[in-house]
Design a protein around this nucleic acid. Structure first.
Length: 431
RNA sequence: UCCUCGGUAGCUCAGUUGGCAGAGCAGCCGGCUGUUAACCGGCGGGCCGGAGGUUCGAGUCCUCCCCGAGGAGCCA
């Protein structure tokens, strides 16, 4: 018999099917036994009675959690069953029977224990929908860029230069030459964008920050776009279109996953329904101060400040034109206000924090040399990057979107560690 | 790096002014013909994070160390 996936059961009502999966839970009530089977696509309940196969009846009692099995039976519509369908089981074929109890029970566990068992934890009910939503976010980003004519051009992960400041680099030995894990693919995207016009990449980046918060990972995925002949204003429009596209795609294609997480898609669609407000850095500081959060002009926004902004607007908000001194060397200055950078951060609603950082880039050699020096960076490793301003210099702009923070927002989960299969957090490299 | 709270059964936790080590879940045995993290009865299960100290006596008080969680700073 051809195996059927749990999500396809609706089109097999009344016929006999074969389900391949793992025993998630079992219950019994006298002479009726219930087996809850997961197959990766969903959960289905099988009902086993003694008038079915007596072997199946015995197995429904004795098999431990996370046994691998094949289940044969007839599909029925059943409102009492989770998922709406139920299988009247005729046969259970165990493929693997664990010798020890599964470490992750259905009751409460502490975070440390769950993180030690992350490789098993991802099988559990609240984890699989998040990972499917992550897949939806990544596919939506790719199809957005593809529809707009962007070319995927990968940036290297092993690099010789810093993008985001030297204190958060992971150093390594590249056959005797100092090297680092990439903090961002941006500099290389600026090169490929001069070759192909519109480019993007999605990949892992690394920040050796001693951060220990619900919105930080040491290794996280960035989706970065870079476009030639694009200015600051066009950059914001591109970012806004991308975020709206991703939210609408996930709301449409992952309603079942969102429902399992008790996340209302209508809330997300409302948040991206209208234009995203755009305020300047200085307006944002004033708003934050008015909300009672202490911060000075010249500070970057901390978590409480971002939360105040996100609470005030209730939708994604762009904060633009930061003081150049607190931003990286590659950002172009505002011609009207040379002390400000032509940049913007996009703050997600509901306190999920900054999900995008972007800017128009410096496009002349003189300006770039000056800003490298001001940042105290050596010139030589950036010589290739300066070449981009020596031949075919072009106004260009781009941004980086944090994939896990976006997943965190859409899935409505409290901590970023659940937004990636195997999170790399401070002091945690196992599993 | 700093601040706060924790570490007791496989897991989640309780443990009174210092005086015999406890519960729920999981496991095992039994019961129940519609369970929804099922329920009911029974059984087994402990280097109380580690090292020192105070005391007749320490899970409990003190010192140091190790580990975990939450938050800050910084960032996406």
């Amino acid at each position: 018999m051809t195996p059927v996936e749990v999500t396809e059961l609706g089109s097999h009502v009344g016929s006999e099917v074969l389900i391949q999966g793992w025993l998630y839970n079992k219950r019994s009530s006298g002479k009726v036994r219930f087996v809850l089977v997961r197959d990766g696509t969903g959960l289905v309940q099988g009902v086993v009675t003694p008038d079915a196969d007596p072997t199946a009846f015995e197995l429904a009692d004795s098999l431990p959690q996370e046994s691998t099995l094949r289940l044969t039976g007839t599909v029925r519509t059943e409102p009492r069953a989770p998922g709406g369908y139920e299988i009247s089981v005729t046969r259970i074929e165990p493929l693997h029977v664990p010798k020890a109890p599964f470490p992750i029970g259905l009751k409460e566990h502490g975070t440390g224990f769950l993180m030690d068992h992350r490789h098993l934890w991802i099988r559990m009910r609240r984890q699989t929908p998040v990972l499917r939503i992550r897949d939806g976010v990544l596919w939506a980003i790719r199809s957005f860029f593809r529809e707009r004519g962007f070319v995927a051009t990968e940036s290297p992960v092993l690099v010789g230069t810093s993008v985001e400041g030297t204190t958060t680099l992971f150093p390594l030995d590249y056959f005797g030459t100092p090297a680092y894990l990439s903090q961002s693919g941006q500099l290389y995207l600026e090169a490929t964008c001069a070759a192909l016009g519109k480019v993007y990449w999605i990949g892992p980046v690394f920040r050796a920050e001693k951060s220990k918060t619900r919105r930080h990972l040491i290794e996280f995925w960035m989706a970065e776009g870079e476009q030639a002949f694009l200015d600051h204003v066009g950059n914001l429009a591109l970012q806004e279109d991308l975020v709206r596209y991703v939210v609408e795609a996930v709301a449409a294609e992952h309603s079942r996953d969102l429902a399992e997480l008790e996340r209302d898609p209508a809330v997300l669609l409302r948040e991206v329904g209208g234009p995203f407000p755009r305020i300047t850095y200085h307006e944002a500081v004033a708003l934050v101060q008015k909300a009672g959060v202490s911060m000075a002009v010249g500070d970057d926004f901390g978590a409480p400040a971002e939360d105040a902004l996100s609470q005030h607007f209730g939708r994604p908000v762009f904060v633009e034109r930061f003081p150049a001194v607190i931003k990286p060397f590659y950002m172009k200055r505002d011609p009207e206000r040379p002390d400000l950078a032509l940049c913007a951060d996009l703050i997600a609603p509901e306190g999920y924090g900054e999900i995008i950082g972007g800017s128009q880039r410096v496009d002349t050699e003189e300006e770039l040399l000056r800003q490298l020096r001001e940042a105290g960076l050596p010139i030589e490793p950036y010589d290739w990057y300066l070449d981009l301003r020596r031949w075919g210099a072009v106004p260009h702009a781009g941004f980086g979107l944090g994939v896990e923070r976006t997943v965190q927002w859409l899935a409505g989960i409290a901590h970023i560690r659940e937004a990636i299969p195997f999170p790399r957090t401070l002091d945690r490299l196992y599993p």
